[in-house]
Structure formats: C-alpha cells, structure tokens
Design a protein around this nucleic acid. Structure first.
Length: 363
RNA sequence: GGUGGGAUUGCGGAGCGGCCAAACGCAGCAGACUGUAAAUCUGCCCUCUACGAGUUCGGUGGUUCGAAUCCACCUCCCACCA
C-alpha cells in the first residue's frame, strides 16, 4: 500500500492518495458500510456510480454467515460480492461493544454467543486475523475492544491494556501479501490513556492508524478533544481513520483535525428509516405527512440520481406504502451526499479554501 | 313482507355487568439512530386549566349500588327466505 500526501492546508487537514492492490483511494474519504457483504440496498454498480472508492465488511458478521468455508470457496469477499475496489474489514472489535450482553471477555479474546442462534464461539486477535485473511480485504483492522461511553478510568485503562496486547498479536499474524493492517487507538476519553495508546501503537508499526471508541454517545466536543490529543502522535506519512463517525459536521471538523478516512452507518441506516440529508448537513424526515404534496426534489442543489428524477412526495409515498424503492432512492441520495461532501472537502483543500468551506459549512 | 345477525374512540376490530377512556392492527403525529442484532426502536394518538377532571361505545327510555356490556322501543346496515 502506498500513501502520499498531495496537499496540506492551514488546518491539520490534508488531501492524500492511498494506492492498494484493488485501486486508489482519494482521501479524505467516506467509506460506505457493507457489514454483511452488501451496502444495504445498493448494487456494487450503483456504488461505483456514486463514486464510492472503498467499502467496509465485517469479520463477526461474515464469520457467522455465510461462514468461512463459503468465503474460502468464493475466493474472498471481493469476488463473493462482486466489488473489485478496495475493501476494509472491521475486526469484530465493535461487536465487543455493540453486543456486550452476548459476550464474555477472556484474556486472549472474546467469547460470543451468536446473536442469531446463541451458538458460542471465540474471537480473538488470532481468529480475527485468520478470518480477515480469508476475506482478503485490502485494509485489515486489528482486534480491539471498543469501550462504551461513559467509561470509568479504571475500566478504560484495563481495556486499553488488553487491546494493546491484542493489537500486538494481530500484528504478528500472517496476512495475504496485498493486505494492510491498521492499529486502533483506544483509551476512552482520558488524555493519558489515548496518548499512551497512540505512542505504543506507533511503536508496533502499522500501515495506518485508526481512532476507535468514539462516536459511541460522547458529547461532540469530547470527540474532537480526543482526536486533538491523538493526532500529534500519529505519523504524518500514514493514513488516519476515525472509526464509526460521523455526522456531516463532525466529518468536516475531523478532517480539519487531521483525519483521512471515515465510515459511518448513518447515511444508509437513516435512509432506510426515511430520513434524507440536505445541504446544511441536517436531515428531513420524508415519512412525515407534510411532504405528501411536496413535488420538489429532496434537495434542489443535489445532483444525485434521486434528486434529478423524483419528488419528496413520491418518496414519501413509497415509504408510506412500504415499497423497497423508497429505501433504495434514499440510500442513493444519502450516500451521494456523504461522498459528495468528501469531494467538496478534497477540492477545497486542493484549492486552498478548506478553512473557508469549514467556516461556512452548515450555514 | 319474514327470520336471523349487527351498529364501539379516523378506518378495521376486541370487549359481553365493576379491574374500560375501552385490547390490538392500520392510518396520523413527534423523536431516536455514529467501526449495522436496525426496511428498526420509543412516545403520543376523546377533551381539558392535564401525576387530576370531564364527556364517550347508533338514539331514547329502563333494570342495577354500578351498563359499551342486561331489557324495551326506534333508526340504520348486512345475510338468508318469500
């Protein structure tokens, strides 16, 4: 994997290029989430039309279904799902957080009770790496524990120690030659823990560095603060990835703080729930009756397929009667919104107007 | 004309003497959603001066301590028979 910074700005934001075996990634980038080998409601072709350059997959979910035997026979995730561009796979670390009630922490990993049928299975750094090796993703995430918010200092410290151990073991595992491993900074909302985490990870030496344990319910200011603590410790010549974030405004702010990569379920999930992002970064609930006779596009300024061809009234109707096309059209729009936001950010960094863009965003 | 069955809060539809302002579904309204257990979840949905009060269950009049629930008549629907 190659990483080159092409432009810097008067903020910590930079415009870079990542080159992987499956193609280029222009950063700052937004990566649509495709947990179960599909970005819900979208075909890979549609994702390409939206100019998506990299998507996510998930170790925990793909391990359970379809299972590793199938993934192996399929020849990896790219072939299986017919997506030939870069893929990043999460390690299952987020499920340690989101499925807390279904797992038990062990020294070498986590014992999960499958959320599908309760089957017990073990996932640790070795297992996670072995699975991601089969998946063949271009960017592999180290196995970590994503801490909740709030999280006591003691809990955060203990968790960080385990995570550091797991990340070291993750690094020691053999991956496919085209794969790249990213370490994940943890430490909850504690400055010394986050600094220690970043420092130790950089020593282990990864191809890229992620900041995890954020966008789990903490105040936005806390999130920015944590990023500001961590970024100075991360090498300038490696990509930085803020896991799970964020809202449009958060993304703009985090780019300014030095983040290169983002992923978030928000555009796709909110689309399925009937909400559409509009220019100012806010959302409108299209299911609401007030759009019944609104024959305007979702956003007059939007150039997406949905906005070019359909009205709010039509989409509201599709949701009202439960037609699947409503979700598809909104997912298209919301992903376009996020991907286009990133393009605007990249362009403004290139032009040297990013600070201005940031200043005016949301107004 | 006859016999039987019905009329319940926007719609559908429970309830069949007190625990009923009345289940549940739909529609409606408001909100949530951040490395996806999410095409999901939560709350509201008769009125009001609203942790309390007041009017409701086709209409009128009864029975009863107490009725949406029982009785009588009336109105309107539905089914079958002439």
């Amino acid at each position: 994997m190659k990483f080159n910074v092409l432009h810097t700005s008067d903020t910590s934001g930079r415009r870079s290029l990542i080159e992987t075996a499956h193609g280029k990634i222009n950063t700052p980038i937004f990566m649509p989430v495709g947990t179960r080998a599909t970005v819900k409601a979208m075909t890979p072709e549609e994702l390409e039309d939206l100019n998506a350059e990299i998507i996510l997959g998930n170790t925990y979910h793909l391990y359970l279904r379809p299972g590793m035997d199938i993934m192996e026979k399929a020849g990896g995730l790219h072939k299986f799902m017919n997506w030939n561009k870069p893929i990043l796979t999460d390690s299952g670390g987020f499920q340690v957080f989101s499925l807390t009630s279904l797992r038990k922490m062990k020294p070498d990993g986590v014992e999960f009770a499958s959320h599908i049928d309760g089957t017990r299975f073990f996932l640790g750094p070795k297992e996670s790496m072995a699975i991601q090796k089969v998946l063949g993703s271009d960017i592999v995430m180290a196995f970590d524990e994503c801490t909740p918010y709030p999280c006591s200092y003691e809990q955060a410290k203990k968790s960080l120690e385990i995570t550091l151990k797991w990340e070291k073991i993750s690094r020691e595992q053999q991956l496919q030659s085209h794969q790249n491993l990213f370490g994940i900074v943890q430490g909850s909302t504690y400055k010394d823990l986050r600094e220690k985490s970043a420092e130790k990870l950089v020593k282990i030496d990864f191809e890229g560095y992620a900041i995890g344990g954020l966008s789990v319910g903490e105040p936005e200011e806390k999130m920015f603060e944590c990023i500001d603590w961590v970024v100075p410790y991360l090498p300038k010549d490696k990509p930085r990835y803020l896991m799970g974030a964020g809202t449009p405004k958060q993304i703009v702010e985090c780019v300014a703080r030095g983040i290169d990569m983002f992923d978030c379920v928000m555009p796709t999930r909110l689309a399925r729930h009937g909400s559409a992002f509009i220019s100012n970064g806010k959302t409108i609930p299209l299911k609401a009756g007030r759009y019944k006779e609104d024959f305007n596009p979702i956003d007059k300024n939007c150039q997406c397929y949905t906005c070019r061809n359909y009205s709010r009234a039509y989409i509201r109707h599709l949701f009202n009667v439960g037609e699947i096309l409503g979700m598809r059209l909104l997912t298209t729009h919301n992903l376009y919104y996020f991907l286009n936001l990133m393009k605007q950010i990249r362009d403004s960094i290139e032009k040297g107007t990013f600070s201005e863009f940031r200043e005016n965003f949301g107004k």
